[in-house]
Design a binder for these strands. Structure first.
Length: 324
DNA sequence: CCGAGCGGAAGCTAAGCCTT
DNA sequence: AAGGCTTAGCTTCCGCTCGG
């Protein structure tokens, strides 16, 4: 069993927790989940942990402080994310994580390896993977860290993708790609062509790293741009892809539009309030009340204009995270 | 006893506003 | 433009209840 397989095999350990009635047990499960998450990804933030554990900001603050007191994690200040800080494991925490995940992690407690320029990108990937894990869509995952460890620390290995997840139903491997900027869509599409060739190599291979590629972004238009770039590359007279290859790529690359807003809200929206203001809940109640009214109106009147207004209202609620 | 969850109080900081 | 003042928002602390 190679390192990636080992990672996939053990990745879900302690990540998804039940909700026991016993607060003591719950606290312990949460602590272990946090250590396992940071162990797997190398770094995390309160926003991510809060969302994953479905808890309040205060609870997550207490949780992190408790771990800090126990000497398992350390929190560092940064300007490059909405939490204005990130969490890593201490040497003690790394040992604990290796015990929980039952594999060697090759982590270091100093923060020189945390690249702040990539922080939001890496955290966005983490958000996606944990969301998939939490909703039971996947049975295991390997992070970019895990993959680069197996590929002998070659940070720029062309096979490097942001994460690999295993579909819980089909058992197939899926590459997760996070597009945090549209810089790769500029120019003549040469960068996109190289990326497509990279995917193709794995998709065509019998023992490739993955069978599918899921594209994520915080901006819907970035995904649309990539789709357009692909179409253009395929349509080009001197297209370097055969029709079969084009079909394979089109079928195997999926654009995950519906997660854009979540990533944006949690990772990029600096205006987002971090506290657990009850106003938020009151706002949600107000929203749901209005939604009920407008839905009733749309149903009774059958007016197309009211229907459009209702759809817009629903969409706005999704963006604000008030409804699913 | 422990820790979650809740509300309230207080400290701190960044941002905005006003005055000079 | 500089400096001071106010305010909003985030965090921490405290005390409380509740459940195993």
């Amino acid at each position: 069993m190679n390192y990636i397989e080992r990672a996939i095999d053990t990745s879900m350990n302690h990540i998804c927790i039940t909700n026991p009635n016993d607060p003591g047990t719950l606290g312990l499960l949460r602590e272990n989940a946090v250590i396992a998450i940071i162990g797997g990804f190398g770094v995390s933030t309160k926003t991510i942990l809060q969302r994953h554990l479905s808890t309040s900001r205060e609870s997550v603050n207490k949780l992190v402080n408790r771990l800090k007191k126990k000497g398992l994690v350390s929190v560092h200040h940064t300007f490059s994310n909405t939490d204005r800080g990130f969490i890593v494991l201490t040497a003690h925490g790394i040992r604990e994580a290796e015990f929980l995940l039952n594999r060697e992690l090759y982590l270091r407690s100093d923060i020189s390896r945390v690249n702040e320029r990539n922080l939001i990108h890496d955290l966005s990937v983490q958000l996606v993977v944990l969301e998939l894990a939490k909703t039971q869509k996947i049975s295991g995952f390997a992070t970019e860290r895990d993959i680069s460890i197996q590929l002998e620390q070659r940070g720029n290995d062309p096979r490097l993708i942001d994460a690999i997840v295993i579909d819980a139903v089909s058992n197939q491997s899926i590459a997760v790609e996070m597009e945090a900027s549209n810089s790769k869509n500029k120019g003549n599409g040469d960068i996109r062509r190289k990326i497509l060739s990279k995917y193709l190599q794995e998709l065509e291979s019998n023992n490739g790293l993955y069978d599918f590629v899921y594209m994520y972004s915080h901006r819907q238009r970035f995904l649309t741009q990539i789709e357009k770039a692909h179409t253009k590359l395929f349509a080009s007279q001197r297209s370097s892809f055969t029709p079969e290859q084009q079909e394979l790529l089109t079928n195997r690359i999926k654009f995950k539009h519906n997660f854009c807003n979540t990533i944006y809200e949690l990772m990029f929206n600096s205006k987002r309030q971090l506290n657990d203001n009850k106003l938020e809940l009151a706002r949600k109640d107000m929203y749901l009340l209005q939604l009920k009214e407008i839905e009733k109106l749309a149903q009774t009147s059958g007016d197309r204009v009211v229907e459009i207004r209702r759809d817009g209202f629903v969409e706005a609620g999704k963006i604000m995270g008030l409804i699913e």
